[in-house]
Design a protein around this nucleic acid. Structure first.
Lengths: 344, 344
DNA sequence: AAAAGTATCCAAAACGTTTTGGATACGAGT
DNA sequence: ACTCGTATCCAAAACGTTTTGGATACTTTT
């Protein structure tokens, strides 16, 4: 039922070769012939069979994204869906398709190997990159192009897109220290992930820059979920000498922290300051509106897609590492420390 | 570089046919031969070339999902990312791949036609289904299997998965009416979408069931964004005789409404009640925690994937329409109307 | 008039898999 | 000795496209 090149060739009275070359724009086909071929192709609604084309061309014009799916890293982050949105959009605009697969972390290598060997995709998008990430060596050895969302430092020559998380959190420390806070806690993402690690480092470096001492009990390393932010904040607030400010390493954690603060009868932004990271749409409408660091999710997705498709095409890629500079978004969840705390 | 059947055949000293049939489990290959083939295949890390296999089999074992991307329908809904998570997971478990494309609404038909004609996918997942949806006729005519998330009533024989939105919103009306509210507003999603339409109908039917009159000025039809919920609530609260309860047709809208209420110095759940829909993870940690209707996003995604893969395989599908029954989740954003209002 | 160039076309091969339709060899049944 | 079944194998075709390496006819140059 589907119309093939053969149908067009028959209809026009020309060979399959000529039909193919006419549509592909080769110069060795007469203008009138080309026109007739194009006309018939359009009339019949011809679209090349992807499998046949992929087989012959030895490429698929497809990017692959493997979603990390584990119980504790649930995939409900609004940041991620905007990232995906940008990724899909730019992928399509570059004439590529995107296939999304899933692989549990235990057979992660197998998932990637299968995708590579089956030639299902020409390149890979890496997300949730870890500091020691087996996927990188795997893809490099296989010689498959890939772009990581999240900096990769150890290995040279890795293409990646990221925002400067260290600087981003540093901005929050600057902001809070500037307001007079001295006991600043941190609800950290897992530091085995590069972004979580850099955010935590930004916290440490920020404290140092302001001459504040690092107190291990003011740091709670947790996962990405809002509930964890809630629990971590509860724990921090229950301390004998609780922090006056909490830097949460993403907005969901921060929203959880806000919730914990209010559940305790305290006023966020007054009794305790809270900051987040990502500036998801919800942050603006939180109660109180959340001070955070802007991370333009869909733009980052777009950049990843553009870099990866360029890489695959062999187009020159200006920068191997594109690191966006973050901007602070100051809202009402942060304010000066309460007087009682200031007196200490 | 990639290892093919030919490599295995040469290594084992057998024909390509036999190698293929050995791996495919045909009975006409000697046990010892099969074993050697399997062994060599495993040793060489053989994975069939997808393009070649698809071309020959005339199917792709792939599902397609076209993301709706427009300015006002931004794709940052946490509900959706969980839906996608379930979809991807179940798709993979069924041995299918998922390709995600994007199509602006103006060339939507073209996007689908291209995907169909290029034989890129064996079936389609429809989301954001509209009441009058051209995609349905298109896919039916093309004879391509598809499953819609969101009921499709007009056309018979359409496979779909949904939650009973009418009933879900009805539950919220019941709840609010039971608390004594009589002026119940509605912030509706666009009613050209089936789910938005059914939710709005649930509101109307609910009012009717409780003998409450329908007031057009208590209804604001908007889009899916939180900001819109904020603005709609502002508008409702600015009325000379504002509603005592607001039914928002999804959680993001509800969160926006909560925000507007607090910005006005009112207390949600006390001065004005608010309910949402979807029970996204954020709802539980909102301030105050949001009364809403549970819609298990990842389960719905899973169901869609399972139904669609069964459909493609030709397996029997028990029910063409799987409609989950919703459950109310009562939290603190809803309470009895303030006394001043009750007196009226 | 022959040679060289140019414009236009196409048959056949190739991509890697699965399927079709036998072929071969061997032992059992007559 | 001959047929018949059975177990095991494989050459060739097919899927639909792109690419290779000419072929043909016509025009221009020498």
């Amino acid at each position: 039922m589907p119309v093939t090149l053969k149908d067009i060739a028959r209809e026009v009275g020309v060979s399959v070769t000529t039909a193919s070359r006419a549509l592909a724009g080769y110069p060795d086909v007469a203008p009138t012939t080309r026109q007739r071929v194009q006309q018939v192709a359009a009339a019949l609604g011809y679209v090349p069979n992807t499998a046949a084309r992929n087989l012959q061309r030895q490429r698929t014009d497809t990017l692959a994204l493997v979603l990390p799916t584990t119980a504790d890293l649930r995939f409900s982050d609004p940041f991620f869906s905007e990232f995906l949105s940008g990724l899909v959009q730019a992928t399509g605009e570059a004439g590529f398709a995107l296939t999304v697969a899933t692989g549990s972390p235990n057979d992660e290598t197998a998932t990637y190997l299968r995708l590579i060997r089956s030639r299902r995709a020409d390149g890979f998008v890496l997300v949730r990159t870890r500091r020691d990430d087996r996927r990188i060596a795997l893809l490099q050895e296989a010689g498959v192009p890939f772009v990581s969302f999240g900096r990769v430092n150890g290995t040279p020559g890795v293409h990646c897109v990221d925002e400067d998380d260290v600087h981003g959190i540093h901005l929050m420390v600057d902001h809070l220290a500037g307001l007079g806070h001295t006991r600043i806690a941190c609800i950290a993402e897992p530091t085995r992930f590069v972004k979580g690690y850099h955010r935590f480092r930004g916290y440490c470096l920020g404290l140092e820059a302001h001459g504040l001492s690092f107190a291990p009990d003011l740091v709670v390393e947790t996962n990405y979920r809002q509930r964890s932010g809630y629990e971590a904040a509860q724990q921090l607030l229950a301390m004998p000498e609780p922090p006056t400010a909490i830097i949460a390493c993403n907005d969901l954690l921060a929203l959880g922290a806000l919730s914990a603060i209010q559940a305790r009868g305290l006023q966020a932004g007054h009794d305790v300051s809270v900051t987040g990271y990502d500036n998801i749409p919800l942050a603006e409408h939180a109660q109180p509106p959340l001070t955070t660091v802007d991370q333009p999710a869909d733009k980052l997705g777009t950049l990843v897609a553009q870099m990866l498709t360029s890489l695959i095409r062999g187009d020159p890629v200006a920068e191997k590492q594109v690191i966006l500079q973050p901007a602070a978004v100051i809202r009402q969840s942060s304010g000066p420390p309460p007087r009682a705390a200031r007196r200490r």
